[in-house]
């Protein structure tokens, strides 16, 4: 069962093309959407909510997102880094407003989260620090216990301690009910190493990678070798390479297979950032 199914999603702006994007967000999974600024992450998320028009099919909870828009939105919690209900509200106002939008709004859960985050109830959101603002948004997104969380940069502006607290919260949210899913876009890919089950890497409007995080971290490798050794590697056995002054760095998809085939044993474990860089800047 997939909570989100996107097929051939395309969107053209002046000078930008989101090109035939297809992906799934399975139930029980946390999917991390990564990519450079302007690669198409936010455009993809906007399309899921019909905030922008698009070509292609989007199914959420198995239903067409355009036909069943209202019904679907009742079961989603959303967050944007740069957009909120209003900055001229305090947390109590927000509670009264959100109650009217969601039948499943859980006042107790909302105030418990605010308390956990140490947020003041009577201060206007505009006077909050950026970290506090983000926490309010997270509390608001989760308080109606939605089936799906779609979060655009939910950890930006948060310090490491709070970030880890939030990631725990997300993990618990899935553990509570494994039919739920989270789709989150982020710049901070180290967060994803600890939380995401799948990585969706979007570059220049195209999906270049859609793999289990596990596979990315365990199977992908970076081989450092001499030019002589590099020339022996067949093109189909590596993703891309970077040529340095003294060595070649080569990104490969399967460490073990590579070891067996080429006998090269010094293979580094790349971070998600490393892998992104190889895809964006590496040569083929």
């Amino acid at each position: 069962m997939n909570n989100i199914e996107v097929r051939n999603l395309s969107k053209e702006y002046d000078g930008f093309l989101l090109d035939n994007v297809s992906f799934d967000v399975p139930a029980g999974a946390i999917v991390g959407l990564i990519g450079e600024n302007g690669a198409g992450k936010t455009t993809t998320i906007k399309a899921l909510f019909n905030i922008i028009g698009f070509k292609g099919d989007v199914k959420i909870f198995g239903k067409d997102s355009k036909v069943y828009e209202k019904e679907i939105k009742k079961d989603i919690g959303a967050l944007f880094d740069d957009s909120f209900l209003s900055d001229y509200l305090n947390c109590k106002h927000i509670n009264k407003i959100m109650k009217d939008f969601y039948e499943t709004w859980d006042e107790k859960k909302y105030f418990d989260l605010l308390k956990q985050f140490d947020l003041p109830l009577n201060k206007l959101v505009k006077d909050f620090s950026s970290g506090m603002k983000m926490k309010v948004k997270i509390a608001v997104a989760m308080a109606h216990s939605p089936k799906l969380l779609i979060l655009d940069e939910p950890t930006s502006g948060l310090d490491p301690v709070v970030r880890s607290e939030i990631l725990d919260l997300f993990r618990k949210y899935i553990e509570e009910d494994e039919s739920r899913s989270i789709l989150l876009s982020t710049h901070i890919t180290t967060d994803l190493e600890h939380i995401s089950d799948y990585i969706l890497f979007i570059d220049n409007g195209k999906i270049v990678l859609d793999v289990p995080t596990d596979e990315l971290l365990e199977d992908y490798g970076v081989v450092k070798c001499s030019e002589e050794d590099f020339l022996k590697i067949k093109a189909e056995d590596y993703v891309s390479y970077k040529k340095g002054k003294y060595q070649y760095a080569v990104l490969i998809k399967n460490k073990n297979e590579f070891k067996r085939k080429y006998g090269i044993t010094t293979i580094d474990k790349p971070s998600i950032d490393d892998i992104m860089l190889f895809y964006i800047r590496g040569e083929k």
Partner: peptide
């Protein structure tokens, strides 16, 4: 104006109101 300052339109479109 308030909606514009808070960039509320994008967020509101993720909520149930049509």
């Amino acid at each position: 104006n308030y909606d514009e300052i808070s960039k509320a339109n994008k967020y509101i479109l993720t909520l149930p109101p049509t």
